[in-house]
Structure formats: C-alpha cells, structure tokens
C-alpha cells in the first residue's frame, strides 16, 4: 500500500517535472528514485514522449515493446476481420454514429488511436489533481508538429514585460515558486546586476559550447546575439 502511494507520488512529481513545475521536494524525490531504479522512471518518461510524438503525427515513432504488446493484446480481443465486416450492427446499436465518424479517418485514425491510448494510459497513472494540470496534459499534443518547412507560428512570441526599457535580447525571468504555493508565474523586472550576470553566463556558455560541440555556426550566433555594446 505504501509502495503504491510512493509510486503515485513519483508519478505526480514526474508529471510536474514534465511541465516544468516540480517543487524542490519533488525534484529531490525524483533524483533519489532515478538513482535507485532509473530504468523504471525512464521507461515512464519514454511513454510520455511517445504520446506526444505520435500525436504530432509522426508516421513512425520509436515504440517500446511494452506498449506494442498491450496493443497486440487489444487487437487479440477484437473480433476477426471477417466478423467485423459489419461492425456496429452486431456490437452495439448505440455505436452506429461513432463508427461512421471513425471510418473516413482511415489511416490517420490509426495514429490517433494509438496516441489516444497512450495518453489515457498516462492519465490513468496520475491521480486527479486540483488545478489545471490534467488540462495541460491534454493540451500539450495540440501544439504544432515539427516540420522542416518554415513555421514561424510555432515560435513563442514573448509577452512584453513591464520594463519598457527591456530589449528583445534580454532573458525572461521566471522565479522559483515557493513550495506549496501555486502562485501564477510572473515576469520579474530584474536588477541590472542580475541582467549583466545572465548575459555574461549565456555568452560564456555559448562560446564554450561552440568549442566543444559540432553544431557549426549556431552557438556563435547565440554568443553574438545577446551582446549590447556600450550602453
């Protein structure tokens, strides 16, 4: 029983972490767990990733065998192709409308079905939480899929800050939430010292990353970006 509780709490923490809203306590818990039995935690992460991946419409996604097996089981439960040639009539008269809705989706429906299952699985292992957490989970896959074509709409346009002097090269700040106080995330107007520090570390990091990495010009573009010559 206590094991179940522990697991449940871990799942909640994991979900919070995925949303970038994990508290300090939760992070410590996950850290400890990933040391103890990293594989289990990672597997769950994979499922989260998979759900998003499939919903994005990727035709081929790396699916772990556990999920594949459960889908196989689901198929085994189904009536054979010959039987289901007249699908809704025999099954459930209430389903007629739905099957008509499903059919035209054909191939696209498959990916959606699998993804749906995966998302349901994810949500079942979470206990319902007050607040918008579940909603966020459902909304996530609705975001734009990755395309290699230009897709400016997927860029998040920064909301203007209160500081009218802030320029676009300034980092946006989100302070750590106080434990247990779900305050809305607010933009802070940073002190000049803090801004200088952030600019400096971002620049140093980018230059160093350019030297160790293999990304060509990108880190240099980042390193040059935030510079503001003499103010």
């Amino acid at each position: 029983m206590s094991h179940g509780n522990h697991q449940q709490r871990l799942n909640e923490s994991l979900s919070a972490l995925m949303d970038g809203e994990a508290s300090e306590l939760e992070i410590q818990r996950l850290l400890k767990e990933s040391d103890a039995s990293g594989s289990d935690l990672q597997e769950r992460w994979s499922r989260y990733q998979l759900a998003g991946s499939v919903l994005r419409g990727d035709k081929v996604a790396p699916v772990d065998l556990g999920l594949a097996a459960s889908i196989s089981a689901a198929i085994a439960d189904e009536p054979s192709l010959a039987d289901s040639a007249q699908p809704s009539a025999a099954n459930d008269s209430g389903d007629t409308g739905r099957s008509r809705w499903w059919r035209p989706l054909s191939r696209g429906a498959v990916a959606a079905t699998v993804a749906f299952a995966a998302v349901l699985g994810v949500q079942q292992i979470q206990s319902p939480q007050p607040g918008g957490n579940m909603l966020a989970e459902v909304e996530r896959p609705a975001q734009q899929p990755v395309q290699s074509l230009p897709q400016p709409s997927s860029f998040v346009v920064p909301t203007p800050t209160l500081n009218t002097r802030a320029v676009s090269t300034a980092p946006q700040l989100v302070p750590e939430q106080r434990l247990g106080v779900p305050s809305p995330q607010v933009q802070v107007v940073p002190s000049p010292e803090l801004m200088r520090h952030l600019n400096r570390v971002m620049l140093e990091h980018s230059e160093q990353a350019a030297r160790v990495g293999s990304q060509g010009m990108v880190p240099f573009a980042r390193a040059t970006y935030g510079e503001r010559p003499s103010e």
Binding site: D77, E78, P87, D95, W102, A109, V110, T113, L120
Partner: peptide, 9 residues
C-alpha cells in the same frame, strides 16, 4: 477505443 475503430483501420 480499439474496438470502436473501423475494420479498415
């Protein structure tokens, strides 16, 4: 969910 999908799927 899988039961409800059409045979073509």
């Amino acid at each position: 969910v899988f039961c409800c999908s059409a045979p073509k799927a």
